[in-house]
Design a protein around this nucleic acid. Structure first.
Length: 840
RNA sequence: GCCGAAGUGGCGGAAUUGGCAGACGCGACGGACUCAAAAUCCGUUGCCCGCAAGGGUGUGUGGGUUCGACUCCCACCUUCGGCACCA
């Protein structure tokens, strides 16, 4: 049966999506006028991708909801800046260069080309005019410039640090190039050794205390905790032990230790130094020389991670020297052991086996004295383990003048006493270490330093920046830093004396690039300064940042550090970069594992787009889980949102349906239904608006589905196409627009032309306001419980008095049956929510 | 080991301040349309007992607080993430 009217064409995303994307581009709809002050600014930032070659579904799940937020904010009148760029330096490009003999720049730019196209297919409103590519000299020259500012300010310095070194290939290895518990080179299988090399550091520890404060920024609690733990502030005391003289050395050397338990000083029965501690050589007794050297050799081969994994077996050897315990005045032996780390505290500890588990194990393994100096108020400390209790009423024993003091107070008292004796005092230590930023890699920002035999270390003058990467690298198959072997790069002239000099061949950690890129987005083309102060003042801090929690203690901490340092340098006006942070969850592979090429569980969005269209994928990603939750990918359910879009299409373009016959509603019925439909639309608007504010995209989708189902119910009736229906369907499109921008735009344009109105984009429409008088229900259904069990639901007009409500409730047959003649002893009435009758 | 997040139908998930558990969707089952299938539309769908009306039970486990607990408290189990000899 073919109807007379023209058949409504089917929803075909392929036919509309690219067309609208092109149109938006043409209109420059997403280009932000950064100088527009007529509207409030909203800086929306999403973590820029690494150009690995493919955008995968994980990128979509970060960027698409962020785009929905951008569109929602625009509809709410904000001037939204939503830029994108590429984190374009890094190791994979270099590995590709080695494997394929291609310049890493070519590999990177090819990938970027491809990814730009893929990113566009999302339909996101990125402002491409602001794009930055960090491997572009126009970007990295400012890395170099900032590095020099840090250097001048004493925030960048060079120092010795241990790195992994392959003795066969003669190269420094990155951490991920050292394999297995045996710690062998990834290429030749030779055991790597630790080698001390000069490395560059940024002084992040200067800001350790300030980084612990999150005042004025709304960040997720888990991230703040992770950063707090990572910074790891400990309060305690530094104590100076002095080395006792013996027949082989004069004594008097100071060994500083940090402890959180200065109250246990009198129980320190030996000391332990890290094997790398600088005093070890001088203190080693000739009789111990051989075992000490052997132990240090062995410790050198292990990384810190290794040290931890060896079942915590407490190995170590005695130096044969002694130190004086400043509390007891006694001579105590000095040992070295790899459970003491050079990088934390002072690299030496006083060992109190009675009150520290690790010291206890060590003492037991090597037959050292255990002396109890803290006892619980009620009873004896356990004999077969360390007593590290922290109750309020422990007291000191065998602690000279401090015996009998409460332990908690003795901490302070002993620290103060040490200070007055010039043997230490209260101290604070952090787990956080300075940021090692030099990489022995070629595909990164060259560090702008020159070494001259005459002048030493000389910074490259600003007007000679950028120090460019060569165009003609040679990447040797055995790896290593190709800059080191690039003669014309290495050899240069000294900026200071014009004599022959050698360039620094280390490059900067790529986390430097990502520590300030959002400032560069604001003036990507400026060639006279890194950061435009006017733009910084107007647009920063970033209002909302979105990205993964895996960056909790790296990128997100470094960025905060940069903010504070750049503020101190007078380059930016704020000390925190990101006002709000949201960590979206991860889409895992179908196997529940993290998606990665090597696992082969990566989802290709291109063919999903081809099959369902970008809008369906967008909607599905937002619908399948709360944004912050992790979930394995599964295409099950994608048909649900696809069907939903088809229904939106149908109710908008074809309210009458194809039955060709209109179901007439009675006048009263029709009026009531129309009112209900409008009420549903306005209630949905109220709730959806709230969900947008809270970034709860999954419930937005389900509420829009409900509204659409509401419309479907009256499709083909005399209500369809009328003013109430029309209002509901108009609101539906506006609410859907940020989520599914293409179909909304298409349907909107057809609405407008159907009404004879001039075209305007739905994405420039104002966000609608809901009508309060409509959302109030005038009839309610009140649940009634008897003794907390649901027995009935009673319909009644809203706004009845408590007495009237109770009367109606008691009149219910089901309630009567449940009461069984008993009189309620209590009536709990939560107005509008429920009534609970309590009997007996 | 320490810190954090999370455990709800067959599945993804929803539930203002403690107040109708399972919204919305997938899947499944039944039906309409079709020669048939797809698509679409309608209906049913936590579990148990019952033909039904109805009743019982139910948010990882065990306790507790409360008129009332997915929600709060205590103890535990499992999964995931981070840190990991940090003195």
């Amino acid at each position: 049966m073919v109807s007379e009217r023209t058949r409504i064409e089917r929803y075909d995303p392929a036919a509309i999506e690219q067309r609208w994307q092109a149109r938006w581009d043409e209109l420059g709809l997403h280009r932000t006028d950064l100088h527009d002050t007529s509207r409030p600014k909203y800086y929306l930032l999403t973590m820029y991708p690494y150009p690995s070659g493919d955008i995968h579904i994980g990128h979509w799940s970060i960027m698409v909801p962020t785009d929905a937020l951008a569109r929602y904010r625009r509809m709410n009148g904000a001037n939204v800046f939503f830029p994108i760029g590429f984190d374009a330096f890094g190791l994979p490009a270099e590995n590709a260069a080695i494997a394929n003999q291609v310049h890493p720049r070519d590999w990177t730019m090819r990938n970027i080309e491809k990814m730009r196209r893929q990113l566009r297919s999302m339909g996101n409103t990125f402002d491409w005019a602001a794009e930055v590519v960090t491997s572009d000299p126009a970007y990295y020259r400012w890395n170099q410039w900032l590095f020099l500012k840090f250097y001048e300010a004493g925030l960048a310095y060079r120092a010795m640090a241990p790195v992994d070194w392959c003795p066969k290939d003669q190269v420094v290895l990155a951490r991920e190039q050292v394999e297995g518990a045996e710690r062998v080179c990834w290429r030749c299988g030779t055991p790597v050794i630790k080698r001390d090399l000069e490395q560059w550091f940024l002084r992040i520890t200067k800001y350790a205390d300030e980084l612990l404060s999150y005042d004025g920024i709304a960040w997720p609690e888990p991230i703040r905790l992770m950063q707090t733990n990572w910074i790891g502030r400990s309060e305690g005391a530094e104590i100076v032990f002095s080395v006792a003289p013996d027949e082989h050395q004069p004594g008097g050397d100071e060994i500083r230790v940090f402890t959180t338990r200065p109250d246990t000083l009198f129980g320190a029965t030996f000391m332990v130094l890290a094997p790398e501690h600088p005093l070890v050589d001088a203190l080693t007794h000739p009789a111990q020389r051989e075992v000490v050297d052997a132990y240090r050799q062995q410790a050198r081969r292990k990384s810190e991670i290794d040290r931890l994994s060896t079942a915590r077996e407490k190995t170590g050897v005695a130096l044969g020297a002694h130190a004086i315990n400043p509390g007891t005045g006694e001579r105590i032996p000095i040992w070295i052991a790899d459970y003491v780390l050079l990088g934390y505290g002072t690299g030496a500890i006083m060992a109190v086996p009675a009150h520290d588990e690790r010291d206890f194990e060590f003492a037991r393994a090597h037959g050292l004295e255990v002396r109890t100096v803290v006892v619980p108020a009620d009873g004896e400390p356990p004999a077969d383990q360390a007593y590290a209790g922290h109750s309020a009423d422990e007291r000191l024993v065998d602690s000279g003048p401090f015996s009998g003091h409460r332990a908690a107070e003795a901490k302070r008292a002993i620290a103060d006493w040490l200070a007055s004796e010039g043997k230490g005092g209260p101290a604070i230590t952090y787990r956080l270490r300075d940021w090692l930023v030099s990489r022995q890699r070629a595909w990164g920002t060259p560090i702008p330093i020159v070494y001259c035999d005459r002048c030493g270390m000389v910074p490259v003058p600003e007007d000679q920046l950028p120090v460019l990467l060569p165009d003609d690298f040679e990447f040797r198959p055995q790896g290593g830093n190709a800059l080191e072997t690039h003669a014309s790069f290495v050899s240069t002239t000294c900026p200071s004396c014009a004599g022959p000099a050698r360039r620094e061949t280390d490059t900067l950690d790529t986390f430097i690039d990502s520590s300030w890129y959002w400032w560069r987005y604001l003036s990507p083309d400026r060639d006279d300064r890194a950061i435009d102060p006017e733009m910084d003042a107007r647009w920063c801090p970033v209002d909302q940042y979105t990205g993964g929690a895996e960056h909790a203690v790296m990128h997100l901490l470094y960025s905060r550090f940069f903010s504070k340092a750049l503020n101190d340098l007078g380059l930016v006006h704020e000390r925190e970069p990101f006002k709000r942070l949201f960590n979206q969850g991860q889409i895992l592979g179908e196997d529940g594992e993290r998606m990665s090429k090597s696992r082969g569980n990566v989802q290709d969005p291109d063919h999903l787009v081809a099959r369902y269209g970008a809008d369906a994928i967008r909607l599905f990603l937002m619908f399948m889980k709360p944004w912050e939750a992790d979930a394995p990918w599964s295409a099950n359910g994608i048909s649900g949102v696809h069907r939903f879009l088809n229904r939106v299409w149908a109710v908008t373009l074809d309210p009458q349906g194809e039955a060709g016959q209109v179901v007439e509603l009675g006048e009263g019925e029709g009026r009531e239904a129309g009112r209900e439909l409008r009420a549903l639309a306005h209630r949905t608007l109220r709730d959806v608006t709230e969900d947008y504010e809270g970034l709860r995209f999954n419930t937005i989708v389900s509420k829009l589905m409900e509204l659409t189902n509401g419309l479907m119910r009256y499709r083909g009736t005399s209500l369809a196409g009328g003013p109430d229906w029309d209002e509901a369907s108009r609101l539906l499109l506006l609410m859907l627009a940020p989520l599914a921008p293409h179909i909304s735009e298409e349907l909107w344009s057809r609405r407008l032309s159907g009404a004879g109105e001039e075209w305007r984009s739905i994405h420039t429409e104002a966000w609608p306001a809901y009508d309060e008088s409509l959302v109030e229900e005038d009839e309610i259904e009140l649940p009634v419980q008897v003794n907390g069990k649901l027995r009935d639901r009673v319909r009644m007009p809203a706004g009845l008095s408590e007495v009237e409500v109770e009367q109606r409730v008691r009149a219910s047959e089901k309630v009567q049956r449940a009461l069984d003649g008993r009189e309620p002893t209590r009536v709990v009435h939560v107005p509008g929510r429920l009534v609970n009758l309590v009997v007996e």
